[in-house]
């Protein structure tokens, strides 16, 4: 029997066996027997180099054909078997596969919610450094050294040499407002920017204080934006964030870098303004600070304070997130307990 004949016989034998196979395991056994490394076919193919040239080509070709034919039949047989199995009904109530899923931090989600309301009003998102210079954190914002107005902005100073000693010492910014100054210094009005970022103040940790938290700052400067525009823009913002029936009020306050300055309150949703533990019995919740940019700030950045005007605002992200989600302890944001994070 020539090698070619032997191969033909092998094929017939294999096809017959395949027709009888009733399970995946049997199919696998047949694959090993006829196509595996120790199969007759494999042996034949190994002897190829030793054969005379003419025979080598013929046998090689025959061998490859056999292999292809068998593989095709095996695949078909597997499919048929699988289709049979598939007809067995599934318990569709079994859990689905475990698909890894991730969540964005509530602070990130809140920042996005806030930014997404200002971006359509033409505001650009800009960021700035957390390591700041005194000039940007204080002086240019009309917060002079040795002035009591600095008291509301206790600050962490950093043991590192200042890159620009003329602009004071290095510190961890206590608010996002320095970015206003940085942007105004390098650009001319009109400007509309929103600035998200981390800020630091030396407040010991407790349920409502943290030495590290997030702010979003806004600035709109041109030749006509007024306090009335500030009221309109923030009222719209708060109604979009907290619901169309949200009541807001603007309460005079003091910030060194704005004038007039205001704190914005919303009517407490828990008690409808009657006063409850959530709002400290005031009926109102303080939400953000704002005001018309102080002319001294314009002077500090080289703008002509007679030609430009506009507003600035700032809000604490954790505070907004706490109100939106009913979170009662600010420290939860930084513990990174998945049972907390996965609820957002």
């Amino acid at each position: 029997m020539t090698v070619a004949q032997e191969l033909d016989q092998l094929l017939a034998e294999a096809l017959a066996a395949l027709a009888q196979a009733r399970s995946a395991a049997e199919l696998e056994q047949l694959r090993v027997r006829f196509l595996g490394r120790k199969s007759r076919l494999a042996e034949v193919m190994k002897t190829l180099p030793a054969l005379p040239a003419e025979e080598r080509a013929a046998v090689g070709k025959r061998g490859n054909q056999l292999k292809a034919a068998l593989e095709a039949r095996l695949a078909a047989a597997r499919e048929t078997l699988a289709a049979d199995t598939a007809r067995e009904p599934l318990d569709v109530t079994l859990p689905g596969a475990a698909i890894p899923q991730g969540w964005l931090h509530p602070v990130t989600q809140t920042i996005e919610a806030v930014l997404s309301l200002f971006i359509p009003m033409g505001f650009e998102v800009v960021e700035g450094p957390e390591l700041e210079l005194e000039r940007y954190n204080f002086d240019a914002l009309n917060i002079p050294r040795d002035h009591p107005s600095r008291e509301s902005f206790d600050t962490f100073f950093v043991e590192a040499s200042s890159p620009e000693p003329k602009k004071g010492r290095l510190l961890l910014r206590s608010h996002t407002s320095p970015v206003q100054v940085r942007v105004m210094e390098r650009r001319k009005p009109p400007l509309r920017i929103v600035v998200p970022g981390v800020v630091y103040r030396p407040d010991p940790l407790d349920p409502s204080h943290s030495f590290m938290f997030h702010q979003v700052e806004g600035l709109m400067v041109d030749d006509r934006t007024s306090f009335a525009d500030l009221k309109g823009a923030l009222d719209l913002f708060l109604k979009t964030l907290f619901g169309p029936r949200t009541k807001t009020r603007f309460r005079p306050h003091f910030f060194p870098f704005t004038e007039p300055s205001a704190e914005v309150d919303i009517a407490c949703a828990s008690c409808g303004g009657r006063g409850c533990p959530t709002c400290g019995k005031k009926g109102w919740l303080e939400i953000m600070g704002c005001g018309m940019v102080h002319p001294n700030v314009f002077k500090a950045v080289g703008y002509d304070p007679r030609a430009v005007q506009g507003f600035a605002f700032g809000l604490g992200v954790e505070r907004i997130a706490m109100l939106r989600h009913g979170i009662t302890d600010i420290r939860l944001f930084f513990e990174n307990d998945l049972r907390f994070l996965e609820q957002c």
């Binding site: 934006t225 306090f227 009335a228 009221k231 309109g232 009020r249 309460r251 005079p252």
Partner: peptide, 16 residues
């Protein structure tokens, strides 16, 4: 402050 109106800024948007 409550007697100051609430208006929306209407000035043109500068290209960012």
């Amino acid at each position: 402050y409550d007697r100051i109106p609430s208006t929306l800024p209407v000035n043109p948007i500068a290209s960012p």
